[in-house]
Design a protein around this nucleic acid. Structure first.
Length: 355
DNA sequence: CACGCGTGGGG
DNA sequence: TCCCCAAGCGT
């Protein structure tokens, strides 16, 4: 790479950022805790979605100590609807590490910060450069896209080796001064101008040194392998209820919607009928079901699974029987408080519909 | 290194 | 309606 190209990217990008940077709540100061929380929320998640969550989260847990001392239920609740829930479980765990095992401060060296759950190469670079002014790359999807175009890199950006290559490129281009601004400028450029489709090249501050623009291949880059299609699954969610009580299920600590409260959910084997599954389950577990009512169905798409969910109401004769360990009786009034993913809220909507 | 892990928005 | 995504990480 020529010295001229490096210089152009540095100066043009920083100048552009000075004029065009977005006014975002986590940019009000350089508090490492705020930067950290914002970076975790922003993983695979759009800025507009994150903003209200960030504001609420900071009111609830203004410092890392507040977060560490908060009950897990409250922390998970604050993340409700944001998705990728392992992020918040890791965040909470890391806060406890910092407060109870460390000195109560976010580590400012790469080796230590990478030991925290939920902080990988990208997030470490973002926090260290933005909050601690260290010259460390923060290569996310935006930066990969910008650099794959600037240098016409046709390798699959999903591969690990390509990302390493990008990191060393960014490292070479980064200025000594304002590394945090430089990283954020790259991300803002990727988010607002160097977009995945129909990029705004005519507005781009680094168009003059962009190889993809020169070759007219900005729409073809970056190269990214296609994800495989989601698995289709038929599910049943059940409202087991008796008087003002219903049964909630705490999901396993690992896997889909890990650790979240919701409704007992069953997968229907192909060719089976949903009521057959529920009836069999009740019989085997000596659950005193009085009747089964199909309330309706809805679709829910995860990144890698597609659920068709049938909602069933089961009236129970009494509460005097043993529940599976992950199930608990909850008050109906607390339904909305006790269910922490959008897929359950869809079930409530279906339930409230008239039959 | 491939896979699992949510959700809502835009073209 | 459909498809692509958006500031990744842990295993």
């Amino acid at each position: 790479m020529s010295e001229e190209k490096r210089h152009t990217i540095q100066t043009q990008l920083l100048a552009w950022y000075g004029q065009n940077k977005r006014d975002l709540p986590w940019r009000k100061n350089k508090d490492p805790y705020r930067i950290w929380v914002s970076e975790i929320m922003l993983q695979q998640t759009r800025v507009d979605t994150v903003i209200p969550y960030f504001e609420r989260f900071m009111k609830l847990f203004p410092t890392v100590e507040d977060l560490a001392n908060a009950p897990e239920e409250q922390v998970l609740k604050a993340w409700e609807g944001l998705g990728y829930y392992s992020r918040v479980r890791n965040l909470h765990q890391a806060a406890k590490q910092i407060v109870h095992e460390g000195d109560g401060k976010i580590p400012s060296d790469k080796k230590s910060i990478l030991k925290l759950k939920g902080i990988g190469t990208y997030t470490a670079g973002a926090v260290l450069s933005i909050a601690f002014d260290q010259k460390i790359p923060a290569v996310d999807g935006n930066v990969m896209r910008v650099f794959s175009r600037l240098f016409a890199i046709e390798e699959d950006i999903a591969s690990g080796t390509t990302r390493k290559k990008m990191e060393s490129l960014v490292e070479r281009v980064m200025p000594e001064e304002a590394p945090g601004d430089f990283n954020q400028a790259l991300m803002d450029l990727g988010a607002t101008i160097c977009t995945p489709v129909s990029p705004g090249c005519l507005l781009c501050p680094v168009r003059s040194v962009c190889e993809a623009y020169e070759k007219g291949m900005e729409e073809q880059l970056p190269v990214k392998k296609k994800a495989k299609p989601p698995v289709q699954q038929e599910m049943v969610m059940v409202f087991f209820q008796h008087q003002n009580l219903f049964i909630g299920e705490k999901r396993p600590e690992q896997g889909l919607l890990a650790g979240l409260w919701g409704l007992p959910t069953f997968e229907i084997p192909k060719g089976d009928h949903h009521l057959t599954i529920i009836e069999k389950f009740c019989k085997e577990n000596r659950i005193p079901a009085l009747n089964y009512i199909i309330k309706g169905e809805f679709q829910h798409v995860f990144s890698h699974r597609h659920w068709k969910v049938t909602v069933v109401e089961v009236e129970l004769k009494n509460t005097g029987f043993d529940l599976p360990t992950s199930w608990s009786w909850l008050e109906k009034e607390k339904r909305e408080e006790k269910t922490w993913a959008n897929v359950y809220h869809k079930a409530f909507k279906t339930e409230r519909k008239k039959v």
